[in-house]
């Protein structure tokens, strides 16, 4: 399947908008929060590798950026052997930053979601073990948020 055909195919999926090709091998799209899980299940066969989940504090709202990479060459870019990437953006409200977890679909997403929860405070519904990963247990606040207030913690760490 060529990458252009793949973009055609994507446009019929539910909840997908703003499909564009930002590099020759990268497809960017926006997702709605409600349809995200169904969409991710449907692309699992092509994109078998969840590369990265980044959370961005866009003041006031949050944005989640998922990167998936296709390793089995089921989608190709013309005649090169370039590996295709999918970049999915989900916008979340600041009041309730929660989204469905994909840790059960891609195991590799497990710790990325934990990290996003740890540093940005985004809740992943259905995650098997959502706790802090880099910061110690009981740390107050989520430091990568732009409104995080720096203060000297008097605790033992």
């Amino acid at each position: 399947m060529n990458i252009d055909e793949f973009m055609q195919q994507l446009s019929s999926s539910k909840g997908v908008s703003n499909i564009s090709k930002i590099r020759k091998n990268t497809v960017k799209l926006d997702l709605t929060k409600e349809e995200s899980l169904d969409f991710f299940v449907s692309i699992k066969s092509e994109f078998e590798h969840c590369s990265l989940i980044s959370a961005i504090d866009n003041q006031p709202d949050f944005e989640l950026v998922y990167h998936f990479s296709c390793m089995n060459q089921s989608i190709v870019v013309d005649d090169s052997n370039c590996a295709v990437m999918l970049e999915a953006h989900i916008y979340l409200k600041r009041e309730a930053p929660s989204v469905d977890s994909i840790a059960n679909i891609w195991f590799g997403a497990d710790w990325h979601e934990r990290e996003a929860f740890d540093l940005m405070g985004i809740y992943f519904i259905g995650h098997p073990d959502l706790r802090r990963v880099l910061l110690p247990e009981g740390f107050a606040g989520h430091p990568l948020r732009k409104d995080y207030v720096y203060e000297i913690h008097e605790e033992e760490w």
Binding site: N25, E48, H49, N81, C82, M85, F107, G108, A109
Partner: peptide, 28 residues
């Protein structure tokens, strides 16, 4: 190799499974 891709294992560890995937070639 399937497990490795699902786990998010990349690089030499994935190539140790026989998967020919190297970003120097595949996303050069």
């Amino acid at each position: 190799a399937e497990q490795a891709k699902n786990f998010g294992i990349t690089g030499p560890n994935l190539r140790g499974c026989g998967t020919k995937f190297d970003l120097r070639k595949h996303d050069t």
